[in-house]
Nucleic acid binder design. Structure first.
Lengths: 125, 125
DNA sequence: CTTTATAGTTCATTTGTTCTGAACAAATGC
DNA sequence: GCATTTGTTCAGAACAAATGAACTATAAAG
């Protein structure tokens, strides 16, 4: 197995970070990695997704996140533990990740509201 | 010609904005549109790019920016003027665009420094 | 120490996007 | 009308993403 690539943040173009976080599956994976204090292995992360995805796809998504400097993956025995590198990124690109996170929160709240509106309409009809 | 699509910001997923700004050409185009007070037509924008691109490609890039809610395109006579919608986006996704812009500044400064280091090396050798 | 199981990666193929030249459309002036 | 300018659309080529099958790496059992 080839060594995993963990670039220095200075070598990561902003575009790579935005591209990595432009995909909803990767955002969900990254959110899972950031959320927990403890490190998560790949299958644990996959279990939290809405739709189940093949492990080859999962592996590729995590590679994109890794090569965008967003996560660090370390082998612990037979499994791979993924940790966020958000502190490093925030030091180099200050405010970037928090503002993207906030934007996703805004979007999720709007979706919840839309769903509630639909549900109410369904009841009243 | 079909009508151009200008979605409401609430209907634009964060992922679409990030995807639009993940491409260096689109970032350059968007920067050109934001920078100037006056509206810019497509060929004027194309002229500012490092590498010249075909106008069909330019048109597609501007469509991506438009459908991500980042710009508004209006026909004025024979030409198309492009304006930024950053105020609208900032109202809905506060801080997102400024932090992305700042990250690009950081990246550009780093690139300039790298170039200067290389130039000095070349002189001293 | 060989076998089996588990957790991920890599490869090759299919599927989907993006790029771009050529044809088209819309407005203006002759 | 016809020519010019500015940009869009279409279709095929070039590129990237998704995924099943094969592979690697570690641990633990036999």
């Amino acid at each position: 197995m080839k060594l995993l690539i963990h670039p220095a943040i200075e070598d990561v173009p902003v575009g790579a970070i935005l591209h990595a976080l432009a995909d909803p599956v990767r955002v969900a994976l990254y959110a899972g990695i950031v959320a927990e204090g403890c490190e998560r292995n790949c299958t644990a992360l996959a279990g939290e997704l809405d739709a189940p995805i093949p492990k080859s796809t999962l592996s590729q998504h995590l590679r994109i996140l890794r090569e965008a400097g967003l996560i660090k993956s370390e082998r612990h025995g037979v499994e791979m533990r993924n940790v966020s590198r958000c502190a490093e990124i925030d030091a180099y690109y200050p405010g970037l990740l928090p503002s993207i996170a906030r934007a996703h929160e805004v979007q999720n709240e709007a979706e919840v509201k839309r769903a509630r509106r639909l549900a109410r309409k369904a009841i009243h009809s």
